[in-house]
Design a binder for these strands. Structure first.
Lengths: 189, 189
DNA sequence: GTCTATACAAAGATAGAC
DNA sequence: GTCTATCTTTGTATAGAC
């Protein structure tokens, strides 16, 4: 599927990082997976720190594109939030994986400062989108009981990430569903 | 402070695991910290898997004791929940640490199945305590807007753990406070 | 219970040929 | 752009003396 080796490496690394953490895969793993020798990987990504930056950049860009698309396609705040919850649920892969942001947040000591900054920007971007979404849901009535959109968004992101963590640890997506049930119960439209 | 070497090792390992993850410390680190040679650690904990079980057991027991104490000392559901939130906030150590459960949940592949089972039991125990607490808050009116104590407890635990993760990643306790602000705003008594 | 010494595997990374 | 070969460090773990 991937035309070039670099993309194949990014795909393999992202899958591995989400399933086993950034320290849970090595260049040897990527080499086996992609079908080249591990020394060759250094041609594309001189260091693993370098690779982590590329991974996070690609992930943040793809994610932002995705939520902007949701904003276009769904008209109510409730429908938009539900779509985001689905993204986090799908990323769990039945409890065997995490979204890259949660995975990277779990091992900040292993990452270069640049990735920490990317994580910060990513969360800020997402909090911004969520705040807009809760405001819309407050206005159009598709999210019940919204009084403080900014606080709702911070809490919602924490629930999404915390629920993923618990579900991943026990490999049981039901834990995710339980944690999100209260929030989903407030949604309509 | 610790009378015996074994306790000193557990203390050192718990601090390290919470600050840098279970894969983020080695027997060499513990040896330096405690002041013995790394080979000597194997006398107390034959393998790191063994150590992880001992860590999680001690942590779960201490935590359960702590929340039972809270249940005794605080009379309202709201006050009890607030005390629990404080425990999670303190465990952050200004964004430099996590509680052991979140830390271990971040690297389940590195842990023996026994610890995964301990994590499951720990969360079940905590969910049970939280459900009782939300029920109390519902009855005594010290937690506003409680309709489903069991769903509230699952969501609350996810918020606590997700907020810790974000705050740890960016080493900023404000992220924790933001994520918990909505829940804390519902508490009184 | 702690030590020295060592085994063994895996990791990230580099040099230089093709 | 990929290869072979190699370096260096670090990790977990064991053997056997004291």
């Amino acid at each position: 599927m991937p035309a070039d080796t670099k993309t194949a490496l990014l795909n393999s690394a992202e899958r591995a990082a989400r399933a086993r953490g950034f320290d849970g895969f090595s260049y040897a793993d990527l080499a086996t997976d992609v079908g080249i020798r591990k020394a060759s990987i250094h041609h594309h990504f001189p260091s693993k720190a370098n690779l982590s930056v590329a991974l996070m950049r690609r992930y943040a860009e793809a994610f932002e594109t995705e939520i902007l698309r949701i904003h276009e396609e769904k008209t109510s705040g409730g429908a938009r939030l539900l779509a985001l919850i689905d993204i986090y649920r799908e990323a769990l892969e039945n409890g065997k994986s995490l979204c890259l942001c949660v995975s990277f947040s779990s091992s900040p000591e292993s990452l270069p400062p640049e990735v920490i900054a990317q994580i910060r920007q990513f969360r800020a971007m997402l909090i911004g989108w969520l705040t807009k979404t809760f405001e819309a849901g407050q206005t159009d009535g598709s999210i019940a009981g919204v009084a403080h959109p900014e606080l709702e968004s911070a809490a919602a992101l924490a629930v999404l990430e915390g629920a993923q963590l618990a579900a991943r640890a026990e490999e049981d997506v039901v834990l995710f569903d339980m944690a999100l049930k209260l929030l989903k119960g407030r949604l309509s439209g």
